[in-house]
Write a protein that binds this DNA or RNA. Structure first.
Lengths: 147, 147, 147, 147
DNA sequence: GTGGTCTAGACCACG
DNA sequence: GTGGTCTAGACCACG
């Protein structure tokens, strides 16, 4: 499991870890029921203190994304909490707007944005397929993983 | 000039202001040569401390986006700093990837993402046109605005 | 014997078990002289580690509520330890105060609290009667129970 | 503002502080808009580390009970979040049941419980009235308060 | 060994 | 001065 945090990023490290774990779940690299690395291990991988890693886990637990059992470890919840359609759309539109502004500021013609997006979606799908193959061969490979 | 900051956002307020000003420039609501509100005024509009507003301006000056002429005020630079093609692409792809993951996590079918994006781009263009009309009628209205 | 523990409760699991056993004794479902399940069995019922169950038993032994006879098992003491009147009142008043504050915080009119209490007391008494009938039919059913 | 925590209580200290603050709000000793003592001050009063006090505040902020503005302090929210009727009743009944069992275990006749409750409710109302008088004379007395 | 809590002390963003 | 984050290291409940 690969996690990258950037201490110079203004977003607090623990929130960066939150994002990374959400990303791994979205990619399917972490699936419902999977065990996460221990907090200590997470700390080492991200080169942060154990407490900081624990705080990220706590955050995700509160959201219902993870479930921890003391003495046993932390697991991806079987059921991700669902937002309603309105909320989802609001969040997504704000992100799309930010993207459009960023592209424009960078001088990227907005006409090219659609095709660029399509390419990244395709890449995402390939990654998910690879993760699915991985999981079929070696479920629960997390914890002794990469790095 | 409308600026919105969210104190509960983990991104520091001064960086939120930086983003907002970049956004106004991207939208064309602020154009090269335009004068910005005074730091004091910016603080009032955003309901933040003068120091916080000053930090945002300082940041944009460092990037070359703004230019301060002592005794006259702060202005949008004639030349926005340009990144090279590689850098631009790297930044944009990271943003696209984040968007794809977010959409997936939210349960939004990736197939719908392209059309949603197109809709936001159209909206952005309309906003730019409106801002352009405004600017033609009332150039440099920024800086002595609300209170 | 039914025992429920909630791992997400901040109260340590072994103390939750302590509470539950006290509750069973209060209800009369466990009576002086009754034999408790083995530590191993308790662990299975509560889905907790054997050590955790053992700690709960140890705690109750310390209080004099339970009594272990080596080679025979753990039994409910013939004499429950008695606190003096002052102590009892102090404990109860603290609990009543917590209840009042909770009801108020929840927005439940304090006027309704008395009648709600009466209803729960009635329910408690009915449960005790049911438990007494059960015990008459099937004394000591505890300890070789489920698995 | 008086806060008491007991380090030997199995409930984590930060949750004890959470309870105490909820209690002060319920009593009306802290009212919507009131400023809380600083985290540093809270730490001193409770004889705990600043971080522990901060964690309690964080918890209440997440619940919507408090609202903190960096650099300015922490305030009681204007609107406490409301649970629906079902939830409220469920929580309250569980507390009532626990009370009944406790009284029974302590050997207090359940018949006396109603009148005892009434007495504590009266006491609570008197305390609230006293707090209201206090607040009228000296609003925002918190922060340099008792000890 | 697993996560949870706590302390002491540092540095930072914000007012 | 205010709260937020982070570290290093300790102790504890639980498995």
């Amino acid at each position: 499991m690969i996690l990258e945090v950037d201490p110079s990023n203004p977003v607090p490290i623990y929130l960066q870890i939150v994002e990374q774990i959400r990303r791994l779940i979205a990619l399917g690299a972490l699936r419902p029921g999977d065990r996460l690395p221990t907090v200590r291990d997470l700390g080492v991988r991200c080169r942060v203190n154990r407490n900081t890693a624990a705080r990220a886990i706590l955050e995700l637990e509160r959201e219902g994304v993870l479930r921890t059992r003391v003495g046993q470890g932390t697991f991806v919840s079987e059921e991700a909490p669902r937002l309603d359609r309105m909320e989802r759309n609001g969040i997504l539109e704000a992100s799309l707007d930010r993207l459009v502004i960023e592209a424009h500021s960078l001088g990227v013609p907005l006409e090219e944005l659609g095709s660029k997006l399509t390419r990244r979606i395709d890449r995402f799908k390939r990654q998910r397929k690879a993760a699915a193959r991985q999981a079929a061969v070696n479920p629960l490979r997390v914890g002794k993983g990469a790095r």
